[in-house]
Design a protein around this nucleic acid. Structure first.
Lengths: 212, 212
DNA sequence: TATTTTACATTCAATTGTGTATGGAAACGT
DNA sequence: ACGTTTCCATACACAATTGAATGTAAAATA
């Protein structure tokens, strides 16, 4: 086979990753062979083994295309809306995150694969990856809820730890149920009232900035 | 090989399912062969193919050993504690459910496998199974929260639909994070404050039966 | 322009898992 | 007690993947 331009080679690499996404989503990671990925991208396994070491390497590369740390969302919000309370920033960041997932089909598909379409293989541990994402999100939430507590914005009987666990668990559960079948409902439409209600209930009573 | 007693045969069947649990948990469903299952049970594939049609059949049988519908929990609570409000019954049922998972290692392991250690295969669709369990739990929650609302026990600005989604998402998220690595924390210890806090916040203000 | 490297396709060897067919001895029904 | 069925081990044939080896023509490089 003739050699390709650097740009062309990069394009086939992306095409292979796209094909991998399709096949992983449709048949699961374990049951898609490298042959299927190559064929679906219009190539042969030669191309796959040139660009990637093995299936695990493809998987890793696929994930790297969609990284979106939660902290970035908060940072964006705080940069955009300047004069907003920390609790309000969290609320907006959550809503923004929901919207992101709904709008970026690739991100949605890759997360669906990570959560529901793969198990162990080679040196890849999807559960550890989920841990990492979750922990990062939790840490970020906790930092901001701690500040909210110090600013006396949280209800008196609500510790920042419990608030963090509560919000984290709710978001995680919502996400899991949605990602199981994204066509079933809109995560944004269902999530907005949940986030508003929960954060509203977390607010200290009588606080003039309280939302519900 | 010599024929076994009916009781002995039933015992090897159980042993095969135990072995399957171990291997599924350790290596994932896709990457465990029937040979491994048989060997780990001290048998050969002949025994496996005698008792089960194929790997999917083993999986199905494994699941049937741990069914535990949420509604049963509520029924138990309502049978046990007679003079209790509907909202309080839900709270107790949730706590009871958490305790069950913590106490029954088999149930925990099988659910961990269902959620994190398997993907598609043959005619088994673990995602659909999760849907089924989730929907069943949601329906049960909704029925009881609807009654709570009619009894004016829920906060005025809280609809039974949002309350259901909230509680369901929180429980689901908590469960997912715990099942990912059950050794990391106790789902009961972390869950109790979350359930109490959330249900406490759902209570109508000024209600004398309010918990926090 | 000559040489080297790149970007694949093709082929090969080896492994692994599956389903089935066969065999045998003991348990079971009668 | 006898034939029949059961429970499992063993053996076999087959398909599916994988990784690596090899080939090759064009792009990059000098």
């Amino acid at each position: 086979m003739a050699r390709k331009t650097k740009a062309e080679a990069a394009a086939t690499r992306e095409a292979l990753l796209d094909a991998a996404e399709d096949m992983f989503m449709e048949h699961g990671v374990a049951r898609t062979s490298l042959e299927q990925i190559a064929r679906h991208a219009g190539m042969t396994r030669g191309a796959v083994y040139w660009h990637f070491k093995n299936k695990g390497d493809i998987f890793r590369a696929m994930l790297e295309r969609v990284r979106m740390p939660f902290q970035e969302l908060v940072d964006e919000i705080e940069a955009l809306e300047h004069d907003v309370s920390s609790l309000e920033a969290i609320r907006l960041a959550c809503l923004q995150g929901l919207q992101r997932f709904e709008q970026h089909p690739r991100s949605r598909r890759v997360h669906a694969i990570l959560i529901h379409r793969c198990e162990f293989f080679s040196d890849i541990d999807p559960i550890a990856m989920q841990q990492e994402i979750t922990d990062e999100c939790r840490d970020s939430l906790y930092q901001h809820l701690l500040i909210s507590k110090q600013q006396h914005m949280l209800a008196d009987n609500l510790s920042p730890e419990v608030a963090t666990d509560l919000l984290q668990a709710m978001l995680s559960g919502l996400f899991h149920e949605w990602i199981r079948d994204p066509g079933r409902f809109s995560i944004y439409n269902r999530g907005v009232p949940l986030v508003n209600q929960l954060i509203g209930m977390m607010h200290r009573q009588g606080d003039p900035t309280r939302k519900h």
